[in-house]
Design a protein around this nucleic acid. Structure first.
Length: 478
RNA sequence: GGUCCCUUCGUCUAUCGGUUAGGACACCAGAUUUUCAUUCUGGGGAGAGCGGUUCGACUCCGCUAGGGACUGCCA
């Protein structure tokens, strides 16, 4: 492992045109996993050669998304646009060696050529490919790659296997735009080479670019990296994942109450398998992950399975962390809230939530569901009671609740097990089963909201709140 | 239209020429239960179709069908 020349180098190279897509996140994860697995390095490059489309916010969104997911890169990120001079240098080389040419076609001529090429079912080529450049004035032009017309280019894809392309089918792609800016296909090749990338693991949508890039490597006399094109993530209906499927940005999943460790586990398992293993640690994932085990078919996002994995990690998670996440999600329900109020709510409910978390966290699959389940705790007095609760509060129940309140007011211990004993003893003294006590008490304490075992509910509420809620309901009755 | 890729239960997958085709999620039924959940037990459910190769094919090959990507001076 000391031979740095053979050490694996992977990279994630998103273009900052919006948010961090969940599919991109998985690509990043696979790259990181493979680097970890091989003891190599995992780099990040921001593909911002198209300055008009790239925004600061989008760059920030990528960093944020990766940070939230817990994906760390080795070394500083590379911004592609800063390397434009180096890209142009490579183009000069290509021009000099006869592997590129200046193309003076006008927009109209290009349109015509494209149409003709499509009609004839052939690749786009410029007449300037075999023509001497115009003399005199410095006319506007792009630089195109002059690819071979004969032979095949074979990509030995680590996921898809050998894929053969006929060179004649490949367009003479633009290397330099008329404003002198480098294009994607040129920049990736130069940057991957300069960064020492050995394994290009990226989305399936780039498979068609691979032969063009391979040809550029060849023309530049560079050794090409290994390619691994992983299938895209589709929505539950099999179509490309889009907004209407509920979420596509990493941030959406965060907002919907999924834990980053659950996302990592789920995403890793999506399109990759290791026997029957479903739940595994980051260390296990790194130890097991190999590109050859990545599936070749696109995988659909399954919300139920994600939720199930998330539920597992919620149960494992630290109570204090969960308590704050739930409190924050609860407070965030009101978008008009100002920061001070927000902190106030966190302060008011945070502690109660953390204390209740041991039995609360088995009751929901996402943080948002936990908020629903914690609602009985968070609601402020006096509680609105739903109709069902009203129906339970018969004369008999009410008088029984009075006697129970008295017993609760004087009991020495307010712990869950003692409260359970008290409840049972009370039921016995009334000569009835717990079924006669439970619904009424639960009703006045929660207003009809879902809640855990009665004794746990009492314990979570605390003595003062419990008695106050009972009195609220009783005074409403009479 | 052209080039390329894909196809095992509803979903994610295991299998890497010989298995009653396994697991997980989801679903259904039952048990437990003071609400809602949880938990437990059991159950149904798959090799797209058609041809080859082979003693033997989910596994290899071909065709068909269906799905997808690309086809930009976007990445």
């Amino acid at each position: 492992m000391t031979d740095t020349r053979s050490a694996v180098v992977t990279r994630f190279a998103p273009s900052p045109t919006g948010f961090l897509h969940i599919g991109g996140a998985r690509t990043a994860l696979f790259n990181q996993l493979y680097a970890r697995h091989t003891g190599g390095r995992f780099l990040l490059r921001i593909e911002d050669t198209d300055r008009a489309r790239s925004t600061e916010e989008a760059v920030a969104a990528i960093f944020e998304g990766l940070a939230w997911l817990g994906i760390e890169t080795d070394g500083e990120p590379v911004f592609q646009h800063t390397r434009a001079d180096r890209h142009r240098e490579a183009v000069e080389e290509l021009l000099a060696s006869g592997n590129a040419y200046r193309d003076y076609m006008t927009a109209e001529e290009l349109d015509a050529e494209r149409e003709a090429a499509r009609a004839e079912g052939r690749a786009v080529r410029s007449p300037w490919r075999d023509r001497a450049p115009p003399t005199g004035a410095n006319l506007p032009h792009v630089v195109r790659f002059k690819g071979p017309k004969d032979g095949d280019t074979v990509i030995d894809d680590l996921v898809q296997g050998p894929v053969r392309f006929s060179n004649d089918d490949l367009d003479d792609l633009v290397l330099l735009r008329s404003d002198g800016a480098p294009t994607y296909n040129l920049a990736v090749v130069v940057d991957d080479h300069d960064m020492g990338v050995t394994h290009v693991i990226r989305g399936d949508d780039h498979l068609n670019n691979a032969p063009r890039q391979a040809l550029i490597y060849q023309a530049l006399g560079w050794e090409r990296p290994a390619f691994a094109h992983i299938p895209l993530i589709h929505g539950p209906d099999g179509a490309k994942l889009s907004k209407r499927h509920g979420a596509q940005a990493v941030g959406d999943f965060a907002n919907q109450g999924y834990l980053p460790e659950a996302m990592r586990n789920y995403l890793t398992r999506l399109g990759w398998g290791h026997g029957d293993d479903e739940i595994f640690s980051d260390e296990q994932a790194a130890a097991w992950f190999d590109i050859k085990d990545v599936g070749r078919a696109p995988a659909r996002l399954d919300w139920d399975k994600l939720a199930s994995v998330n539920a597992h990690y919620i149960r494992q998670a630290d109570d204090a962390r969960l308590g704050m996440l739930v409190a924050r999600a609860f407070a965030s329900r009101d978008p008009s809230m100002i920061y001070g109020e927000f902190m106030g709510i966190l302060d008011r409910v945070g502690k109660r939530l953390v204390a209740a978390m041991p039995f609360l966290k088995t009751r929901g699959k996402t943080i948002l569901e936990l908020v629903d389940q914690a609602e009985f705790l968070l609601a402020e007095r006096p509680l609105a009671l739903d109709d069902k609760v009203g129906a339970i509060l018969t004369e008999e129940t009410v008088s029984r609740l009075r006697r129970l309140a008295a017993a609760l007011a004087t009991t020495a211990s307010w712990s869950d097990p003692d409260l359970e004993l008290l409840l049972k003893a009370f039921a016995a003294s009334e000569g009835v089963g717990l079924g006669k006590i439970g619904p009424g008490l639960r009703g006045v304490l929660t207003g009809g909201r879902p809640s855990p075992d009665l004794s746990k509910t009492l314990a979570a509420l605390g003595r003062d709140e419990t008695l106050a809620r009972i009195h609220d309901a009783l005074s409403q009755r009479t």
